[in-house]
Amino acid sequence: MVTALLDGLVTMIVYLYDLTEMILKAFRDSFLVIREGARPVLSVYLRQVYFTGLEAVKIVISTALIIGTVVITQIVSIAGTGSESLTGKVLVWIVVRELGPLLTAIIVVARSGTAIAAELSQMKIGGEIESLALLGIPPEKYLILPRIFGVATAVVVLTIYFEIGAVLGSFLVASFGWHVPWEQYSQGVFAVLTIWELALSLLKSLLFGLFIGAICCRQGLSVGKSVTQIPQAATKAVMQSLFLLFIIDGIISLFFLIR
């Protein structure tokens, strides 16, 4: 039992190391791409931002408004009206620290993680990766790099939208339900919303985005020759991304938030 756990732990560490190396290579390659391949790589990057980011705006903002409503209702039901300082604190803790980056990343995994893994695996099985290599175009620069950075950009921007949406959603409920004026509400929120809180939230979302991109690309390119491996790769990409999101979230919370 202990040996199996240790084995699992070692495998996970090795896997995390591989993913980190993949992300670092993408950063190194980005300097090389400036000299060669900038135009097509930028085009793939923008396409990825469009599909992962822009097309998910509606679902992210809707979710954020609902989450904001739920959170403010819960806080008021516990603390009552007139405790704006506590309301602000809890809202920032829950939405900005945790739910914003995490829920946004989960939405991205569900929408785009599967798409990336399926697309790349289909390209590999169809011999397109090899066709690119025959053109002298390294797949890691043309396919992986823009996807990793595209997903990371999308997650960071969507997280900002999510947090704004959740705070506005909660204000709307507070305003209509309990007649809380904007000045009073915003004082409570902005008193605890520091640069530190925002920076941590963005750091989380950036790491989430980078690792989601890396995992989905890795799973997509890990297929062999059978098309039955495409859905398997997509499922693995989603499950591993979700698992890693919680691990990263836990690690960041442990390191930065216990002060």
Binding site: E36, G37, P40, E128, S131, L134, G136, I137
Partner: peptide
């Protein structure tokens, strides 16, 4: 330059994008 029986085209790029890809890249 390799001309493959499948054409060697990338499925998510349009015809024109496939055609000019090597020039755009290199």
């Amino acid at each position: 330059a390799v001309v493959q029986s499948s054409g060697g085209l990338v499925s998510n790029l349009k015809v024109w994008e496939n055609l000019v890809l090597p020039l755009e890249y290199h």
